[in-house]
Structure formats: C-alpha cells, structure tokens
C-alpha cells in the first residue's frame, strides 16, 4: 500500500488540517507521500518534509497552480494517482473542491470527511450534521478520502523526508483565478485556535458583535459566529462555524447569544469545554454546554473581561 496526501498550504507553510490529515494517513498502513502543488511553494514543501510519518515529498511548482483551481490540481494529482492505494486530503475548502473531481476521474466513490480509520478500507464518517455516525467500507481499488481534521491529532514536526520535484502538467484552461479577498486578522485561525469566542443572533448587530473582541483579546481566542449572525451581516462568511461552515474542536468554545441550531452544534460539539451565555433558559445550546450562564450577554461579557483581569 502507498498513501498520497495532498497538502493545503499558503506557499510558505502548511495550513492547519494538513498535519492532522497526515496522522490519519499514517493509520492506513504503507508509506506516506505528500504532494505540494502550488506557485512558489518550495518553503511549503520543506515544511511538509519535517512532518513525522512522511516518507517523501513531491513538489510541483508552476504559475497555473496559483489559487489552486480544481481543474488544474485534479490534473496534477491524476498524473500520479495510479501509483497509490489511497489518496487523502483535508476536508477543508480546498480538499472539498478538487477531491471529488479526482474521484470521479478515477471512477471511485469518494469517502468524505472521515473521523476515524477502522482499517485500510473501512472508515467512520459523520452524516446528518454529525448526529449519525456511519461506518462505511469501500470496494474501490483506489480509496479517495477527505479527512475531518479535528478528529485527528496533528503530526509532530520530527520528520526529515526527501523532497523531489514533480513536473507540472499543462493547465486545463477552463477557468481563471482572479484573486482572493481574505479577512485580515491578528487573531489565530478558527480551525487552529485553542480557544474560540463565537457570537450568534443574540449579538443584535455588527456594532454589538464587537463587544466580543476584548474577550477574545483576553483569552487569545479566535472569533467565530453562527450562521444566523453571518446571514444577518454582523460578520463575514468565513467566521461561520457549523455543518456547512467550519468544523472546530478547540479546548474552549465560548458561545455567546447562540441558541444552538442543529447545524451550528454540528460544527463545534466536539470542543473539549463549551461555555454558553444566553438569556433564554431553554436555549438548546445548554444541552451540550459544560457550563452555562442564563443572563443578558451584554452584562455578562464585560463582567467576564473584568474577571479575567
């Protein structure tokens, strides 16, 4: 068996999730090769070589990989896919985008978002917003898998794999990357944060949402939001935690003014400790909270900032 992991990176570093995916890949048995596809991504290739459990790193560096267009990344993966028994990527925005394309071209039924490796062909994956865990067995010759990063620990940085260059394949020429508008923040990334402070509809407005910032500053936390808060325009889309937003599992998740819709719980219920602050004593979020306060968030949040010193 041989396992190919496709890294998500920003050219310089691996994105959070990739090292967890390498941990999942190591459980499959067989050598793990990491493919780093990008433009000016040599540093990311070097970072991948340091991850424990990696036997070899392949780096494909070419201008057409800027923006990681699904059509182009797929073509690159397909150029070497037949050498592997398993093709694995994190179930992040990038992995979700190109991996099903790879699977379809290999005539394989992808296994999405696995949370556990039972054996080389059997996996557990969450369905119905994480309310039902399905154990599935694949009969395909090559297994194409995306990994729920929060379900696996990140691999350590104790490796020293060989790095080889892999020739780029021609661009598909079907689409054009015109740039990204990334939310600038000095805070940790949601999917990598140890602590997350999240706001919901109860925040009331974009202006009010800002009262979470001093709290996040005190805790060194990332700031997230429920779908209701995003839909109401309080914060941008990339703040959204939930079934179809980001899946997070920090040490501490502080849910402020979030009632606890099923699709929000799906994104955060594996957090180690959950604190909920809501004035509605019947809020469903309390059913999964470790600690909760029934009170007005506009009173509690400033008090909490003071209490934390």
């Amino acid at each position: 068996m041989a396992v190919l992991v496709i890294a998500e990176h920003d050219g310089k570093q691996l994105k959070p999730g990739t090292t967890n995916t390498i941990t999942a890949a190591s459980k499959l048995g067989g050598d793990v090769t990491v493919l780093v596809v990008g433009h000016q991504c040599a540093e990311a290739g070097a970072a991948a070589a340091k991850v424990a459990g990696v036997a070899k790193v392949l780096v494909t560096d070419a201008p057409q990989y800027e923006g990681a267009l699904a059509e182009n990344v797929t073509a690159q993966v397909l150029s070497i896919a037949k050498n592997y028994s398993h093709i694995v990527a994190p179930a992040t925005g990038m992995g979700k985008n190109f991996m099903p394309r790879v699977a379809a071209m290999l005539d394989v039924q992808q296994i999405s978002d696995i949370s556990s490796v039972v054996s080389a062909d059997t996996f557990v994956r969450p369905t119905y917003a994480g309310n039902v865990m399905a154990t599935v067995q694949s009969s395909d010759a090559i297994k194409v898998i995306t990994v729920r990063a929060t379900a696996f620990d990140p691999a350590a940085e104790t490796g020293s794999a060989a790095v080889e260059a892999l020739a780029a394949v021609p661009a598909a020429g079907l689409s054009k990357f015109n740039g990204q508008e990334l939310t600038k923040s000095a805070r940790p990334e949601l999917t990598a944060a140890r602590i997350i402070v999240s706001g919901g509809r109860g925040m009331g407005s974009a202006e009010n949402f800002k009262i979470l910032e001093p709290l996040a500053d005190k805790l060194g936390a990332a700031v997230g939001a429920s779908r209701a808060a995003v839909d109401s325009g309080f914060v941008p889309n990339d703040y959204q935690v939930g079934q179809t937003g980001k899946i997070v599992a920090p040490e501490l998740y502080v849910a402020v003014g979030i009632s606890g819709a099923i699709q929000h719980l799906a994104g955060m219920k594996d957090s180690k400790v959950i604190v909920a602050i809501n004035k509605d004593a019947e809020a469903p979020i309390f059913s999964i909270a470790s600690y909760w306060i029934v009170d007005d968030l506009f009173k509690v949040v400033p008090e909490l900032v003071t209490e934390l010193g």
Binding site: Q109, V132, M133, A134, T135, S138, S139, Y291
Partner: peptide, 18 residues
Amino acid sequence: RLKTLKVEEPAKRSSGVK
C-alpha cells in the same frame, strides 16, 4: 461502491452545569 456496515449515534457529551 460504499457499503454501510452500521450507523450509530455519536457518543454523548457528559452533562454540564449551570
């Protein structure tokens, strides 16, 4: 291509306190 061997509810969180 995928055979579902079983489905189950996820492990319950231990209950919290107010």
